[in-house]
């Protein structure tokens, strides 16, 4: 058996429909442990916060997934995609019902970064991240979602294409354009500030 085949075997073993049924609460719990950070960060990225609302939404994702668990069939990765779709629907519902958020609300960088990676003393990076975070919220939903998946969740482009059901070229081009746009907006912001 080749290494690739062995890998498939173990993946099937831990991810097949039968052994990876999430109707079993202990397995659902295990799935939660493996996925909650991704779901939470995805929701944070899409909504922009506030933290408590994102936490409530994350809890709601798992509550809905648990209620409809009988409908799910697939492996672990598919389960994460399923969770994210539930999350996305919640965000859409939220946007429908919520008034426009005040864009100028204070951004707490401590909630966004790992203090070991970006210590308080590195105020330049923290300012930059705060600015970038604010700009993310001004992006169209699909562009923001791609950046969240690519950078905040750390997905590969191929994974994103499967999840969003788009071509690799489409995802790559859209992301490149979005980065360009952010770069351009930041330049304009700087110029405006210098005036």
């Amino acid at each position: 058996m080749t290494k690739a085949m062995a890998l498939q075997t173990i993946k099937r073993y831990f991810s097949s429909d039968t052994s990876f049924s999430i109707t079993d609460a202990s397995l659902f719990s295990r799935l939660y442990e493996k996925t909650y950070l991704s779901v939470f960060r995805y929701l944070y990225g899409l909504t922009g916060g506030p933290l408590q609302e994102v936490e409530d939404l994350t809890a709601e994702v798992y509550a809905r997934a648990w209620k409809t668990r009988e409908n799910f069939h697939g492996n672990e990765r598919a389960a994460l995609g399923w969770m994210l779709r539930i999350a996305k629907n919640l965000v859409i519902d939220l946007a429908r019902n919520r008034k426009v958020r005040d864009r100028d609300e204070e951004i707490d960088v401590d909630l966004l970064v790992d203090p070991d990676q970006v210590p308080e003393s590195d105020f330049i990076t923290r300012e930059q991240i705060a600015t970038l975070w604010q700009m993310l919220s001004s992006l169209p939903d699909d562009q923001r979602e791609m950046l969240v998946l690519r950078y905040i969740l750390g997905w590969q482009v191929k994974q994103i294409t499967q999840y969003l059901d788009r071509t690799e070229n489409n995802v790559s081009v859209t992301m490149r354009r979005t980065l360009n746009r952010l770069q351009r907006d930041l330049s304009q912001l700087q110029e405006k500030d210098n005036e």
């Binding site: 994102v54 970038l132 905040i152």
Partner: peptide, 10 residues
């Protein structure tokens, strides 16, 4: 910078 955005629940 985007990759450094790694929020965590409370």
């Amino acid at each position: 910078l985007l990759a450094k955005i790694q929020p965590k629940p409370s």
